[in-house]
Design a binder for these strands. Sequence first.
DNA 1: CGTTGGATTGAAACGGCTCAATGTTTGTGG
DNA 2: CCACAAACATTGAGCCGTTTCAATCCAACG
Lengths: 226, 226
Amino acid sequence: MTNKNHEHKSCVSLVPIFNHLDAEQMNEIMETASSQSFKKGELVYHAGETSDVLTIVNKGSLRLYRLSESGKEQLVRVLRPGEFTGELALFNEKVHENYAEAMEPTSVCQITRSDLQALLIKYPSISLKILQELSTRVDQSETQATRFTTESTEQRLASYLVDLLGPDSQTNIVTLPLAKKDLASYIGTTPETVSRKLKELEEMNLIKRISSSKIKILDEDNLLFL
Amino acid sequence: MTNKNHEHKSCVSLVPIFNHLDAEQMNEIMETASSQSFKKGELVYHAGETSDVLTIVNKGSLRLYRLSESGKEQLVRVLRPGEFTGELALFNEKVHENYAEAMEPTSVCQITRSDLQALLIKYPSISLKILQELSTRVDQSETQATRFTTESTEQRLASYLVDLLGPDSQTNIVTLPLAKKDLASYIGTTPETVSRKLKELEEMNLIKRISSSKIKILDEDNLLFL
DNA sequence: CGTTGGATTGAAACGGCTCAATGTTTGTGG
DNA sequence: CCACAAACATTGAGCCGTTTCAATCCAACG
């Protein structure tokens, strides 16, 4: 019986969007959110589908990707706990353009359009959080698009590695969070080219491959300077 | 004396974001917005600048672009009356990543962070409008990024032309709203290649060039099918 | 221990860019 | 209204980076 509440609690409490609310407000939101789980490989939604829910990742991760006309796949981004998707269908009543696929066992919570709109009206500060998130995403996507047309594959790979590192790092070792195939798709190239370019970067003594998914950044400055 | 009010009125009345509000609310917003004009080529803001205003185009148009590390320019999009920019700096207190340049004599109106936040709290429906706009922009930017990596230059040009046409068109004639240089940058190529590809499309009887900026779409289906 | 899928490497083909020459408009001043 | 300049558009040739396809290598896993 408390099961349902627990589910809701675990769902919402993690979400940065609602973090700033007090316990009472949080409870109200929990009432409106529902929880759902997906096995690895299952689709939370797919392009062409309509939907009226905002989906927030609770545990696990979602792979957002698009298919071009020709069927080629483009990894758009990966959603981690606390991040959300579905805003296009939700706010614009359009069909999804992305596919959202669980990369591992993943649980999400979902809020319907009408519930969310009521919440936004009642607690306008929530919308500021969402606005923040969306404007960040616009920026990231535009940055990515700019890189596709103005930088070489090698530069994009180097930028990606440095981005992974972040400003604060002791060891200078990054762990690739994506399969090679997805990494390649994300930076707009092929697995073969990723392999070749990593090799080149290593030969230039800019990086060192520790294991298949661990890479030590030896020279951050020159990686960006390429 | 009524001068200032007129300026405000002309400013806000055009803006879709606020369209749904009643006259009294509109008046209140007018009080908080300020108006500014730019000559062709002037920058409304530039990358690296901090700012705490949302900028809404009132008349004219703004060219939003980025510069890559190497100095290459990427046209991100063009803002027409009613559209806004500045959300990254405003909601996230980050520096601008884009340059915003007037393409012609242009007037904008601006609302400061604190004024806007107050408005959002007071009239939550405004935030729904902004949410709509931002989620649309995320979608557009992701679509653009996907095209860069999954489609050929020829396909991107063709898609661009068809997008210009829109679903409703009598004549099937599109008017290029951008200089060739900007068009090329927008679709991620060079003016030379645009020229060559337009020629090829014409030789395939998919389009017909009427004048330098007018193009007749002869075969929309096959343009997308390339 | 074999099988299967991913990662690497090689060779060849191709698409698009650069640079340079030529052609075409546009606008301006005589 | 014409002439000329300056900017822009087109075309050509050569080059370079990346993809493709195929072969091989490696590693994880049943």
